[in-house]
Amino acid sequence: MPNRSDTKVITPALLRDWALPVPSGGKDARGTVLVVGGSRFTPGAVLLAGVAALRAGAGVLQLATAESTAAALSIQVPEALVVGLPETSAGAVAGRSGDRLSDLVAEADVVAVGPGLNDIDETLRLLHVVCDAAPSDTALVLDAYALGALSHEPGLLVGAGRPVVLTPNLTEARHLLGRDVGEDLDAEAAELADRYDAVVSLFGHVADPDGGSWREESGDAGLGTSGSGDVRCGLLAGLLSRGARPAQAACWAAFAHAVSGQRLVPQYGRIGFLARELLAEIPHTIATV
């Protein structure tokens, strides 16, 4: 286990000294994000994550989701290539190997798995499809049901040398830890980073497997709203796509997510804004650090 350094508070000054890459050239220079998620009943999670990735700077967006919702999603997100995936009878995305999904994974710079998925067994199969198809330098962001699936096979990503970021909430962290989550979230994030060989962002507490530890302190109650985690997942994927390293992307995403919420408080109050309203605030928040 690495020696843990003192936890650093994520501030604008810290982020200015850890400036994001600013790609030049066309959209390909800003990378391709593939979001794998959704179900017959939760296509909105994929929409939120995908648009957040674009708002954070991704150049190309691709969405792989339940085939029954793909056409509607392609109209709602005209900037994206949307591919329908096979479904189970209950409307969950089926974790089947297939040339189209494997090809998309192989060509993506970042693959975000989890938003809107709703079947643990099928999600674990999807994770295997993604890991088998993705080149070793392809970054993965695992969220929601993908984290629950990972808890069933905790060694899946260990030692692979792949850039990975996990974004658990407290319930998902409990599954990943196999116990209740303690009050010291810095320590809990660090334990998860060590156990899963990945950068972990847990309620603004960021840890990497090499011993780094950071904390975002400006998040407020309004972020605890439906779809907020999907926005954070996509935001992180977009930052990775434009060239940020995993811990850097996690810290910037934690800050941009929290401060975008703060910017909505004067209009909607502390707990009145919607997750989709965070999306338009992301570029300004990042640009004004």
Rank of each mutant, 00 (worst) to 15 (best):
Trp252Ser: 01
Gly25Leu: 02
Arg263Gly: 12
Ala254Ser: 10
Ser102Ile: 14
Phe41Ile: 15
Leu142Gln: 06
Asn3Lys: 12
Asp121Tyr: 10
Gly148Ala: 14
Val51Asp: 03
Ala237Asn: 01
Ala247Phe: 13
Pro86Phe: 07
Trp214Val: 08
Cys251Ser: 14
Val93Met: 07
Phe41Ser: 15
Glu87Arg: 12
Glu153Trp: 08
Glu217Met: 12
Arg162Gln: 06
Val165Asn: 11
Glu122His: 09
Arg96Ala: 15
Tyr196Asn: 05
Ser74Val: 13
Ala66Gln: 05
Gly25Phe: 13
Trp18Ser: 02
Leu47Glu: 08
Thr32Phe: 00
Arg40Cys: 08
Asp137Cys: 11
Ala254Cys: 08
Thr138His: 15
Gly219Met: 14
Phe203Val: 14
Leu48Met: 00
Gly159Asp: 09
Asp119Ala: 09
Ala58Phe: 04
Glu87His: 14
Gly26Pro: 05
Leu117Ala: 10
Asp194Gln: 06
Asp17Leu: 04
Glu188Val: 02
Tyr196Leu: 13
Leu73Trp: 03
Ser39Lys: 03
Asp17Thr: 12
Ser74Gly: 06
Glu67Lys: 14
Ser260Gln: 03
Leu202Trp: 06
Trp252His: 02
Gly57Glu: 14
Ala247Met: 01
Leu166Gln: 01
Val265Leu: 00
Val289Cys: 06
Gly224His: 04
Ser68Tyr: 12
Asp143Thr: 03
Leu239Ile: 08
Ile282Ser: 04
Phe273Ser: 03
Glu277Val: 12
Gly178Ser: 07
Arg40Gln: 14
Gly178Glu: 04
Ala66Phe: 03
Val200Arg: 04
Ala52Asp: 03
Ser201Asn: 14
Tyr268Val: 14
Leu279Asn: 01
Gly155Leu: 10
Ala45Pro: 02
Pro135Leu: 14
Leu101Asn: 11
Ile75Met: 06
Leu34Trp: 11
Ala70Phe: 09
Val60Ala: 01
Ala13Asp: 15
Thr11Glu: 05
Val129Gly: 05
Pro78Leu: 00
Thr65Leu: 00
Val113Cys: 01
Ala250Thr: 00
Asp180Tyr: 08
Ala221Ser: 06
Glu107Thr: 15
Gly269Pro: 06
Leu61Ala: 07
Val46Phe: 07
Glu87Pro: 02
Asp132Val: 11
Phe273Val: 09
Glu67Tyr: 04
Val83Ile: 13
Glu122Phe: 01
Leu236Met: 07
Thr225Ala: 11
